[in-house]
């Protein structure tokens, strides 16, 4: 008896939702990194004014662990009703080649690209090197002597620096740390010679004149750092730089009309002036690509990453 009534309730709710407007209740945004971190604050800033743009609130839920694989996996397996949107990040480009998890961007219905960050090579305030050329010349003359700290094996910044090293045949002594903050403090304390991090991660130290940024691994200069040369300008051209990226995605099989509602709704949140202002303040470059553009970008990223991963021995 109980079972039947349960079924009735279930059926009723299903049938009512078919005719209802979408969205009729709050949307969940799954963030695969912990609360208070960089990715999380961006997500929270993005959905702050959600109600104006999509009619309902968007609640951020942090599902952390497994280098982001847990949260992204949760998005992939979520009910395809459009009420679960996931934030996806760089790790998704490396899971499969590194043998960490089987997920790739092909498992998702891509919504849009949010931002791209580029790597910066940074040395301490009192370092003997004043330009990228100084550093590379020295490192070539003393193979393995220059210690280069990065944020973790397989992270975007590790691969970005390794790609440069492989291309120009420079042997650095790579020292992996666990995230951006410990890497920065290792440089400030003089425990490593150079660090590779996202350029936005060293913005504050740059403004306080505590460090020297030698170059940014991007095709164009960063608007918040107009004085920092790109790798090509510094004399070491890299054709396709490894970029960190963040984007939004849905599980597969969400009905098309709902995808459209979400795509335009999140685009409006993305264009919200207060979100733009926040990103400018923390030095993040917003890059919009719609679903197709995002897919091209990720497919291209795979091609760029494989040889680099192979060169540092992380390809499985």
């Amino acid at each position: 008896m109980k079972c039947i009534s349960f079924l009735c309730v279930a059926l009723l709710t299903i049938s009512s939702s078919v005719f209802a407007d979408f969205p009729e209740k709050d949307i969940t945004l799954v963030v695969p990194w912990s609360a208070g971190g960089g990715t999380d604050t961006i997500a929270r800033a993005l959905v702050k004014n959600a109600k104006q743009h999509i009619g309902v609130n968007v609640n951020v839920v942090n599902k952390t662990g497994g280098q982001g694989a847990i949260g992204m996996g949760a998005t992939k397996r979520a009910r395809p009703d459009g009420y679960t949107v996931g934030l996806i990040t760089f790790g998704l480009s490396t899971y499969k080649p590194m043998g960490l998890s089987n997920q790739t961007f092909r498992d998702y219905e891509l919504l849009q690209l949010l931002n791209q960050s580029s790597a910066a090579l940074t040395v301490g305030k009192n370092s003997q090197w004043n330009s990228l050329d100084d550093l590379i010349t020295y490192a070539k003359a003393n193979p393995g002597k220059v210690t280069l700290g990065h944020t973790g094996a397989g992270a975007a910044w590790h691969l970005s620096a390794a790609a440069l090293g492989v291309l120009y045949d420079v042997e650095f002594n790579y020292i992996p740390f666990d995230g951006g903050a410990p890497t920065r403090s290792a440089l400030l304390g003089g425990h490593v010679d150079v660090i590779a991090t996202g350029i936005d991660e060293v913005k504050q130290l740059h403004e306080a004149d505590q460090i020297k940024i030698l170059a940014v691994n991007a095709l164009t200069r960063h608007p918040a750092f107009p004085s920092i040369p790109t790798l090509a300008e510094a004399g070491y051209k890299v054709d396709a730089p490894v970029l960190d990226w963040r984007g939004l995605a849905l599980p597969k099989n969400v009905p098309d009309d709902r995808v459209d509602v979400l795509a335009s709704g999140f685009k409006r949140m993305f264009d919200d002036p207060s979100f733009r202002e926040y990103c400018e303040k923390v030095g993040l470059i917003l890059v919009y690509e719609n679903s197709d553009g995002f897919e091209d970008f990720l497919a291209n990223m795979e091609k760029v990453l494989e040889p680099t991963l192979g060169a540092v021995g992380l390809l499985k």
Partner: peptide, 14 residues
């Protein structure tokens, strides 16, 4: 605390 509790089959979306 706005922790999403499991809703099971009574979830409003279905």
């Amino acid at each position: 605390l706005m922790i999403p509790m499991p809703e099971g089959i009574f979830s409003r979306s279905y």
